[in-house]
């Protein structure tokens, strides 16, 4: 006789939010586990170091969950959360000075890879390339950078970005268009064929 195994489906975000509103702390843990990586990628790209990115993630989760009335369920919770996290990251970046945190001379957590033993040098090259990509992002305006990061790192659609930032799809397209032009120009200048 085989034992019947009931596989309960994962609760939806809406169900978790309802449970959280009812005081269930485990719902918060599940939401955090689901979206912490996406939120961190966006925050890190906008801030350039792990400590500040984690602060922005923390701030973003708190603001998103304490202002759920602004969410209204019109978009996915992930979209709403990434909006709040990216805004929190930009605020934090303004407060702390983005350029300082990006400096390769500082003790940035990302540059730990530079001290890793790697006979092939591949890890070093990857770290350098990532630093170059981050530098290129600094050539963009804040609005372009936020739009591009939501597109590239958060993998939101044009429509979702438009909803997140409260702008038209045409403006999303125009920001991405000019962002790509600037990034291409920067990367082309700093590479050799």
């Amino acid at each position: 006789m085989s034992a019947a195994v009931s596989l309960s489906p994962e609760p939806s975000d809406q169900q978790l939010l309802a449970r959280f509103a009812g005081g269930d702390a485990t719902a918060l843990d599940e939401l955090f586990r689901r979206y912490r990586s996406a939120a961190y990628r966006v925050a890190h790209r906008l801030l350039g170091n792990e400590a500040d990115a984690l602060d922005a993630v923390q701030e973003g989760f708190i603001k998103a969950l304490t202002h759920l009335r602004g969410f209204q369920g019109r978009s996915a919770f992930k979209t709403w959360l990434l909006r709040v996290v990216s805004n929190a990251a930009l605020d934090l970046g303004r407060q702390r000075g983005r350029r300082e945190t990006l400096s390769l001379d500082t003790g940035d957590c990302n540059n730990v890879e530079l001290l890793t033993f790697d006979p092939s040098g591949q890890a070093l090259e990857q770290a350098d390339l990532r630093a170059l990509l981050d530098e290129a992002l600094q050539t963009l305006s804040e609005a372009q950078r936020q739009t591009f990061v939501l597109y590239a790192d958060a993998e939101l659609t044009y429509r979702e970005i438009a909803d997140v930032l409260g702008i038209s799809i045409g403006t999303v397209m125009s920001r991405l268009h000019y962002a790509r032009q600037k990034l291409r120009a920067y990367l082309s200048e700093r590479t050799v064929s």
Binding site: R180, L183, R184, R190
Partner: peptide
Amino acid sequence: WSSEASQADSLPELANLYRQHQP
């Protein structure tokens, strides 16, 4: 890194380049 830089010719490829080099 000219091959990486050339990915900036296309927005989806450029986005992919950034996704491949995440922290």
